[in-house]
Design a protein around this nucleic acid. Structure first.
Lengths: 138, 138
DNA sequence: ATACGATCTGTAGTTACTACAGATGCAAGA
DNA sequence: TCTTGCATCTGTAGTAACTACAGATCGTAT
């Protein structure tokens, strides 16, 4: 996986379009070490390999699943380590799944409270507002 | 509501304990204009009124319900305006409720994808990992 | 007066981006 | 080759919502 394929190189704009990751976000990920520094043209422009593209796509998918950059860093550690087990990946993913479920529960409670408040605010013409009252704890 | 009650004054620590809002967060809210600047002691310490306490409690509840500070700013505008209607509050709250529902849906999709991935990663002993493969789009 | 916890202001950091500004690269067309 | 215009670079700073100091001062009890 460290062997650079003698394939075409991608510019950053191309990489952005291929992966759906914003150009500035790509540079951000590089800056904070999530993705490796790519080769450069003689003029200093970034030249990404297919491997770079795959790696960035990984980041994009993982972000889409709600993994934090820190967690993604950990996942890459496991990938690059090669002695890591699927169990470690599984555990990290399970932990994350629990966090996602907690967030769902919290949002559902929020939804319930908001729905109740809205239900009490019927016609919208009254200067006294049950939503505002609820916020003031009245 | 602009009439200061001649009641006891709260220090910031007291206010923090009463409302559950962190001291530094209280100062942050003041700095960005969410809450008004309180009176000060001769020595320069903040002295909060019961009205300040109510207002901060409002912020705390609204934050708990996921309203952004910008939205809370808007709600206070409606409260302080006194010509605003409950309909305006209702509309803002409905908009927010929709956002909350969208977030729930997004998280639920995330949960499904994660559950699928975890289900494919059975025993945890295989160096090849279906979770990692999924992230790489394999 | 001293000691100690509370509080102050100002600055900077967290997370995950996002948006310039001024300078340079690069490719196509004249 | 020169020009033009879009792409890209680096560095800096901003967004949202906090959070955490550091050094100085306040306030109260002994």
């Amino acid at each position: 996986m460290n062997v650079k394929q003698s394939s075409r190189a991608y510019g950053i704009g191309e990489l952005s379009r291929e992966t759906g990751v914003n150009i500035e976000t790509i540079r951000y990920y590089e800056r904070i070490g999530i993705t490796p520094k790519p080769d450069r043209s003689a003029g200093g422009n970034r030249q990404y390999s297919m491997d770079d593209l795959k790696r960035l796509s990984f980041v994009k998918r993982a972000r889409g699943l709600g993994f934090s950059l820190g967690e993604i860093r950990g996942l890459f550690g496991m990938v690059d380590d090669q002695s890591s087990t699927c169990k470690q990946v599984h555990d990290l993913t399970m932990t994350h799944l629990h966090v996602v479920r907690d967030k769902i529960n919290a949002l559902q409670e929020m939804e319930r409270a908001l729905s109740d408040m809205v239900a009490q605010c019927g016609q919208g013409n009254v200067p006294d507002c049950p939503i505002i009252d609820a916020m003031f704890g009245i």
